[in-house]
Amino acid sequence: MTVAAKIKYPNRYDIVGSFLRPEKLKRARDAYHAHQISRDALTQVENSEINRLVKKEVELGLTDVTSGEFRRSWWHLDFLDGLSGAHFFTPDHGFIFNGQETRRGGIKITNKIAYNPNHPFFDDFAYLNGVVPEGITAKQTIPSPSVLFPNKDAEIYDDYYKNDLNAFLEDEIKAYQQTVRHFYDIGCRYLQIDDTSWGMWASFSKGTINPDLKPLCEAAVKAINAIADNKPDDLVLTMHICRGNYDSNWAGAGAYDPVADYLAQLHIDGYFLEYDDERSGGFEPLKKIAENGRDQRIVLGLVTTKKPELESQSDLKRRIKLASQFAPLEDLCLSPQCGFASTEEGNHLTENEQWQKIKLVVDTAKQVWPH
């Protein structure tokens, strides 16, 4: 893999990560879980569909591509389950998304959190990196460390650290640092951490952060910066903030204002921020990131992945111009607001509608930033 020349990431037109699972892949996963096909047979289908996906991403003009998270069931639980000390379990209830109960899934921390040199995501990335064309960057996505913070509402339970946040953070940070280094050693140069915590913490606050959440915000900044400060200089590290994305539904609503001061402290290379509807509030918080003295890009997630209707290009340009009142246009980029399938269920649109959304992002960004 060779990183595309003269392209800074996040790119002016970028992607969050997940794509709708093709029907052939869904049928193969169902057959595997029904013990009708082998793990090798499922892997062959996954490989074939990832190859097809990469080809489509490149055809649409993307300079960084993902595997669509085609080997995952959940955007986060599959990764967390792969860490030593954390294990997937099936709770009594699913998550509540705007009144809708999701499929059930959770994590129990039963031992010391540690790096797993045999984490399955390493082989998954190696495969993706081996099939991307010359000049295209393979992008890897993993959940942010804050997603593993014990939280019964998120079905993350601590049966080991017994509320000792400092001991938990020490182990988690080390595990993430080693994991990131392993990704780098096998060729990863663009890593995105996906974070639902900031969006939910903002949802639970009014204007300023809820005092009860301050220790968690500070712990998240500590963990993310420890990872960012330890990474190789030529590894791009970005963060996507989400308020929930399941079956075209959402979990939280609230502007970024309560968490903006914390976000501005992060030592990452770029932010992917949801801005597809009024749930995300205004662009004013961008000013705090823009004025923090770091060379960071802000990716505006203006194109929704939750609905099939195509946005107006003129409206996208208008909103980008509005955002540029708070952060310089040269620091802004454009993307969908989230992935199209954070879980294997996927959102309510077709593959063709999904690709129309990606094409709109690419075409609009090329007009706004022609050079």
Results as ranks from 00 to 15, higher is better:
G301K: 09
A264V: 08
I113W: 06
D233P: 01
D185V: 05
R243Y: 04
E291A: 07
E330L: 08
V45Y: 15
G135N: 11
N51P: 00
G301T: 04
D331K: 14
D64S: 14
E134Q: 13
N51G: 02
G199C: 08
D277Q: 07
R72L: 02
E284K: 11
P215I: 00
C217Y: 07
Q356G: 01
K6H: 12
F19L: 02
D261R: 11
A290W: 10
K174R: 12
N245V: 03
C188W: 03
E101W: 00
V303A: 13
W369G: 01
T179Q: 03
A31R: 13
P117C: 06
A154M: 14
G346V: 00
G346F: 13
Q178V: 01
F79D: 06
F204Y: 13
H33W: 13
D158Y: 10
C242S: 07
K214I: 00
K55A: 11
D92P: 04
A255M: 03
K359A: 14
Y256V: 06
D229Y: 05
P285N: 12
D158T: 03
P10N: 11
P258M: 10
D261Y: 01
S67F: 09
H93I: 05
C217E: 07
F125Q: 03
D185R: 13
Q296A: 01
I241K: 03
L263D: 13
L80M: 14
I241C: 00
S324M: 06
N11Y: 12
A4G: 15
S312W: 14
G187V: 03
P308K: 04
I37G: 11
K231T: 11
V65Y: 15
V45T: 06
E172H: 05
E218C: 04
S203D: 08
